[in-house]
């Protein structure tokens, strides 16, 4: 079966955040607890997360925010260059997934449709997957004691539906489907944009982290959108760091052998 994935065409994202809300609605996610505080005279908690960073108040992905729309204002002083870029970000369902590689308990698994998801009943909350993700996707939730992230709507896609975010996206910026089909669409759209003069347009995710099942069309360099240009899957470096460590261990062992060799006796004997 072909891997399922999403193609996020940021050139037609209007920054409406419907994807963020649809995601929370379908997946039963609450408001992010850190965004709310008690207020005198009110029985409920009131939002206090104004950021001042363009229209982005949720700031990043978290255990309750599986989607996050970035707002990038690119204006020079006389406004002759004026651009406001939007891009909806989520788990990329990497083919070489740092989180999955790091998980010690097989709580993070890949399904037959290629999506990577966290088995909540297995996760022990060691949090090691969190720093292992080069995209800062997976996060810990104090309330469940486990980690959470986008599942690519595992329940929906295994029942013939697309993801909730793609369903809610009013402009088709988030498209769900078979990865090869989506790649064809992405290629065609890139050609179209290049023709219209978007020289910096690029597709992000064909090669990164072994290929991303959720990939992007950006109008500017990936860093502009907060994505590492060359994401390194941490485990790719495992052999080297292990080797250096083993070498150090051998050196220490040799050092010990030398330091504790029974020279005292030799000295004393004559």
């Amino acid at each position: 079966m072909n891997a399922k994935g999403m193609f996020v065409d940021t050139s037609i994202c209007t920054g409406c955040k419907a994807c963020q809300v649809a995601c929370k609605e379908w997946n039963g996610l609450s408001g992010e607890p850190s965004h709310f505080a008690k207020k005198a005279g009110y029985p409920y908690r009131v939002a206090n997360n104004f950021s001042g960073r363009s229209y982005d108040n949720t700031q990043n992905l978290s255990a309750t925010d599986w989607r996050h729309v970035r707002f990038i204002e690119q204006f020079n002083a006389d406004r002759s260059e004026a651009r406001w870029l939007f891009a909806s970000d989520s788990c990329k369902h990497c083919n070489n997934a740092g989180c999955l590689n790091a998980c010690p308990v097989q709580a993070i698994v890949r399904t037959d449709l290629g999506n990577v998801f966290v088995k909540q009943e297995v996760c022990i909350g060691c949090k090691y997957c969190i720093p292992a993700c080069p995209y800062g996707v997976i996060s810990f939730d104090q309330r469940t004691g486990t980690v959470h992230k986008c599942t690519l709507c595992n329940d929906r896609i295994h029942n013939g539906l697309g993801t909730a975010c793609a369903k809610a996206c009013p402009t088709g910026s988030i498209a769900f489907g078979d990865v090869p089909d989506l790649k064809m669409r992405a290629d065609a759209r890139l050609v179209q944009l290049k023709k219209l003069g978007y020289e910096k347009a690029n597709i992000y995710g064909y090669d990164e982290a072994g290929g991303l099942n959720v990939f992007y069309l950006f109008l500017d360099k990936p860093e502009v959108y907060g994505q590492p240009e060359k994401p390194v899957v941490p485990q790719d470096r495992l052999h080297i760091s292990s080797g250096v460590t083993v070498a150090a261990a051998i050196a220490v062992a040799v050092g010990a052998a030398i330091a504790f060799r029974e020279r005292g006796e030799k000295k004393d004997k004559p």
Binding site: I130, G136, S139
Partner: peptide
């Protein structure tokens, strides 16, 4: 903007 992963806390 966060260019890196999250901290495990």
């Amino acid at each position: 903007m966060a260019l890196e992963s999250q901290a495990p806390h």
